[in-house]
């Protein structure tokens, strides 16, 4: 079982799928695609007897299977994701994104939601039907705009993965998160603070903000304890906020983005 299987099992599929999305997966469905010569192994229930009579050879009806996925991803590429203990969090986030889109089959489509557009997932252009737009990496990340774009542009039933550190997430977003969970199968990966296990420095420290700003401070034992408590509390709060809204959640570990995604779905491999 992998992430795709978990999505298709549909335990957490949204309530209002509506018309669903078009699919090109050939399998057990209803929409006719083509008629072709029977090959051993074809489901005998799909043999078109009229066509067989006309052709004087067994003919199989090929239909579309209604299991194609639309995979969406909202990825925070802001400066705060470009720091990390051993490497930037963004690298792990991109690994998770790649693993996410990696579950795609040809009949699926994969898109990224940016602040103001949705774009085909990188590397998926050509074999996926997707909207076309530029997909430049962005230093800033507008959480509200990205979620609004995803809501407006993605079809119902989309499996949406959102990856970020969620510093901007607060009670104002509760309504949006609930709304998105009603439309999509939503998963949030919350980037674990690089110094979750302890600040690396002691003494006089100059803090430089990943997105600007800074401060000079003394970091002693008191500050280290307060920091550890604050980081855990923030992570717990963010996870609870997503889960209350109906999102699947997971922790993005800096060391392995793909496995972080798998853990969020409770599977061994993405």
């Amino acid at each position: 079982m992998n992430v795709r299987d978990a999505l298709l099992r549909g335990k957490r599929r949204p309530r209002n799928l509506g018309g669903g999305s078009p699919t090109v997966f050939r399998g057990d469905g209803y929409e006719f695609v083509e008629l072709r010569a029977y090959v051993p192994g074809d489901d005998v229930r799909r043999i078109d007897w009229a066509a067989t009579a006309r052709a004087n050879a067994l003919q199989t009806r090929v239909v579309l299977e209604d299991v194609a996925l639309t995979l969406g991803c909202v990825l925070d590429e802001s400066g705060s994701m470009r720091i990390g203990r051993t490497r930037p969090l963004l690298e792990a986030a991109r690994e998770a994104q790649a693993a996410w889109f990696g579950v795609c089959r040809p009949e699926d489509r994969a898109v990224r939601a940016l602040d103001d557009a949705i774009v085909p997932a990188k590397g998926e252009r050509g074999r996926l039907s997707a909207l076309v737009a530029s997909a430049a990496s962005r230093q800033d990340f507008d959480l509200d705009a990205s979620l609004a774009t995803a809501r407006a542009a993605l079809p119902r039933g989309t499996a949406l993965l959102a990856i970020g550190d969620w510093f901007d997430l607060d009670a104002r977003h509760d309504g949006v998160l609930i709304d998105l969970a009603g439309r999509f199968d939503c998963t949030a990966l919350v980037a674990r603070d690089p110094w979750y296990d302890g600040l690396p420095l002691r003494g006089l420290v100059r803090l430089r903000g990943a997105e600007g700003g800074g401060a000079r401070a003394y970091v002693g034992e008191r500050e280290r304890v307060a920091y550890a408590r604050a980081v855990r509390e923030r992570e717990r709060t963010v996870l609870e906020r997503f889960e209350r809204a109906g999102w699947r959640t997971g922790i993005l570990d800096e060391s392995d983005g793909a496995q972080s995604l798998a853990r969020a779905f409770g599977v061994a491999e993405p």
């Binding site: 720091i83 510093f167 690089p194 600040l199 690396p200 420290v205 803090l207 903000g209 997105e211």
Partner: peptide, 10 residues
């Protein structure tokens, strides 16, 4: 002893 942090205000 510089510490680049995601969110200094936090």
């Amino acid at each position: 002893n510089d510490l680049v942090y995601s969110n200094v205000p936090f």
